[in-house]
Amino acid sequence: MSNPKSPLSTPEQELAQRTRRGFLGLGVGAAAAVGGWQWLWSQPQMGGVPMPLRRVLDANARLTQGALFGDQHLAPEFPPERIQQIRANGDFGLEAPLDPESWRLAVTPYRGAAPAQLTLADLKKLNKLDYTAEFKCIEGWSSIVRWGGVRFRDFVSMYAPGAERAAFVSLETPDKEYFVGVDMASMLHPQTMLCFEKNGQPLELAHGAPLRLVIPVKYGIKNIKRIGAITFSDQPPLDYWAEEGYDYYAGL
């Protein structure tokens, strides 16, 4: 090794030294990158992904909900002629036969108010909401659909007053096979609805009859079909796909 303080005699020698140093630096950088990558995947899992990735998903969600964007933007609406065929994708929680006559929506209001069992007729007493928007699946496809139902916001005022103070809403299928947790701000969004009509017709079973959630500010995974129970809470409720490595917020 030459003494770095002594002047190098030729440009060739200096280049050789700088090349050694340069590639050593590149090698150290590459080793650090590989080490960082291995560290990432060695971290404890949290909801199906390594903890640091979960933290970043949550931080991205806070950024979206916070000052940067706000969370009351409306999903664009479309003219009815742009309605598209929508595929029936998820069937978790839809396996048991459904008897529309005996179906009830079990509502557990916030902080100990009396629980209620609602029929579809109870919900239809609220003002009808009807719009055409783009439904977006987390897989990457999307379809323009006309939905009909009642605003979740109106539902809370009528059947669970005060529950808007809760931080989260939990929604489950009657058999509890599928369940989602959604932040209250997104649930109170003016386009979030308890839906019983698709393209002007009663919902089909495969699309969530008798009652589903339509929440255009979230990916399809949060748009739970065949709702059996609604609960309000301050802690994030269990969420089917968030346990499988997906973003809990899943917001658009």
Partner: peptide, 20 residues
């Protein structure tokens, strides 16, 4: 990533499926 938050942008790019 946030087609509702920046709907103006998504629409400007021709809509969600075009942007993808």
């Amino acid at each position: 990533y946030r087609p509702i938050q920046v709907a103006w942008l998504t629409e400007g790019l021709g809509g969600y499926t075009w942007a993808r």
